[in-house]
Design a protein around this nucleic acid. Structure first.
Lengths: 158, 158
DNA sequence: CTTGACCTGTTATGATATTACATACATAAG
DNA sequence: CTTATGTATGTAATATCATAACAGGTCAAG
């Protein structure tokens, strides 16, 4: 499961918003939100969880798109490049970005008990990371911030 | 290449130190630093860079250890569990930890130009991450902090 | 010296990701 | 309108990374 912050929300509404933002962003970047790409983003939003490339591919096949891995990987890579999706490396998976265009470098909180994944706002974390990098003269362009631990529910149980 | 902080240092010396610390740490944890495990750690220290499991395996084979992937993966997993090595997910690779036993949750700085990897001290980053997680009631146990960007040399060139 | 826990080796397979090339489509220049 | 150009898609083949399952070996405690 992928929740924006371990609580419920108006799902259909947020999906519509994000797709609209996606249109704007890609247009602004001079990129094309083609059918496969759009569909992959919709799938990520619908499923609302971290999905493997092959999971996405299965859905695409069922809808008549190409059935080879590159079809999924290319669309996913495009979405990540546009800031519309994120790659969660710990899970070999991808999720739709819930706040495209805004504060980037979110942190992902992954529950080792129930596998829930939440996207946490991480401006402060990014700032700290850039500061630490700057100490060494390193310029950060992108970051993967992933934490493994226990979500609120599983903390309560334990 | 894996450098501790994008600059030179006394390599043989740091390797010896780390091995000694490794002995202490595993003994303290009631774990056994067996020949394969010790050798894998030495290999990581010698090569001084992020190595894939299969790279490590090749070295092991050449030295008469088992030649199947689990041999490498198990030793590497052990070292990671003991805090003697880190997994860099972005590279599907592992590196020896340069400061075992100390401040953990280092951040990795990966140069997209020359592929150098540096381990940066990241207490501040970890603190910020834990704070952000705490906001959502999430308890962080482990974290992968990986930044992609440009190292000092490559910044200078550009 | 036997038991139980853990470590190692091996087989087999699964899961993830990319390279290379062919085809199709969009856009803009002629 | 046609052609040239860049970009996107489809497909085959393969590379790379990782784990499950089981057999045999080692070691220390009782």
């Amino acid at each position: 499961m992928h929740t924006p912050a371990f609580h419920n929300h108006d799902h259909a509404h947020c999906t519509g918003d994000v797709m609209a933002r996606a249109e704007e962003i890609t247009r602004a970047n001079g990129a094309r939100l083609t059918p496969v790409r759009r569909r992959v983003l919709e799938i990520l939003l619908e499923e609302h969880r971290a999905m493997g490339a092959y999971d996405v591919l299965q859905r695409l096949v069922a809808e008549g798109f190409g059935n080879q891995p590159p079809v999924a990987y290319r669309a996913l890579e495009f979405l990540v490049d546009q800031g519309l999706a994120h790659r969660v490396r710990r899970l070999n998976a991808f999720t739709a970005c819930m706040t495209p265009g805004e504060s980037h470098a979110p942190a992902f909180l992954i529950c080792r008990q129930c596998n829930a994944v939440a996207e946490a706002p991480a401006e402060g974390v990014r700032a700290a990371l850039e500061a630490a990098a700057a100490e060494l003269g390193f310029v950060v362009e992108r970051a993967n911030l992933e934490a493994l631990g226990l979500c609120p529910k599983c903390v309560a149980q334990a």
